[in-house]
Amino acid sequence: MAKIILTHEVSGLGSAGDVVDVKNGYARNFLFPRGFATPWSRGAEKQIESIKNARAARDLASLEDAQALAAKLTSTTLTVPVKSGAEGRLFGTVRAEDVAKAVQASGLGSIDKRRVELTQRIKTTGVYQAVVRLHEEVNANVEFEVVPA
């Protein structure tokens, strides 16, 4: 097991500034190359406070914004145009990036694709839902329709 410090929010693991234990391969092959974490050390422990302070300042300023955006997202059905073939079968799948682009195209603002969690694998046209983590305390259930492009 490796002790690491998260530098970004990782779904199911923690948020920036958290110290967690993960398997060595997960840290070495996934978290470190993507910049989601750094190895834990006594010197790095001092950085935790600065990461947490910066996150707290950012979160306090954005809590009201996140709640307002969540209200807009839950009341709107987004349209995600995707290339499709016969009978509504898609060429590929709908990704979190596609949902994030649909939010931006609808004029509701921009969100990071890493904050979008698709609940299922989408291979056909239709209406689906996703969860968008806007803030540590605010999640928005977004409904979107996959249509042929």
Score class of each variant (00 low, 15 high):
residue 65 D to S: 13
residue 28 R to S: 08
residue 103 V to H: 06
residue 16 A to R: 11
residue 112 D to H: 06
residue 82 V to D: 02
residue 49 E to P: 00
residue 2 A to G: 10
residue 25 G to M: 01
residue 35 G to R: 01
residue 141 N to F: 11
residue 45 E to C: 01
residue 134 L to F: 03
residue 7 T to S: 05
residue 64 E to C: 01
residue 66 A to S: 14
residue 133 R to T: 12
residue 14 G to S: 08
residue 97 E to G: 08
residue 107 G to Y: 08
residue 118 L to A: 09
residue 70 A to R: 13
residue 136 E to G: 15
residue 14 G to W: 04
residue 40 W to D: 10
residue 132 V to I: 09
residue 80 V to H: 02
residue 113 K to A: 06
residue 129 Q to R: 15
residue 95 R to Q: 09
residue 86 A to K: 07
residue 42 R to M: 11
residue 114 R to H: 13
residue 33 P to D: 00
residue 7 T to G: 01
residue 79 T to K: 14
residue 139 N to Y: 06
residue 3 K to D: 06
residue 27 A to V: 12
residue 141 N to Q: 15
residue 80 V to C: 05
residue 137 E to L: 13
residue 120 Q to L: 05
residue 128 Y to L: 08
residue 85 G to T: 02
residue 58 R to K: 10
residue 103 V to C: 02
residue 13 L to G: 02
residue 76 T to W: 07
residue 121 R to K: 14
residue 70 A to L: 08
residue 92 G to W: 06
residue 72 K to M: 05
residue 70 A to P: 13
residue 60 L to M: 00
residue 4 I to G: 09
residue 121 R to Y: 07
residue 3 K to C: 05
residue 14 G to P: 10
residue 40 W to S: 08
residue 22 V to Q: 10
residue 134 L to H: 03
residue 27 A to T: 10
residue 42 R to K: 15
residue 49 E to T: 08
residue 15 S to R: 15
residue 83 K to H: 10
residue 146 V to P: 00
residue 8 H to F: 09
residue 81 P to L: 03
residue 70 A to Y: 05
residue 58 R to G: 03
residue 9 E to F: 12
residue 133 R to L: 14
residue 72 K to R: 14
residue 53 N to M: 03
residue 54 A to C: 07
residue 81 P to Q: 02
residue 107 G to T: 11
residue 133 R to A: 14
residue 129 Q to E: 15
residue 138 V to L: 08
residue 88 G to Q: 03
residue 106 S to R: 12
residue 49 E to K: 13
residue 128 Y to F: 15
residue 106 S to K: 14
residue 126 G to Y: 12
residue 28 R to A: 04
residue 100 A to C: 02
residue 113 K to W: 06
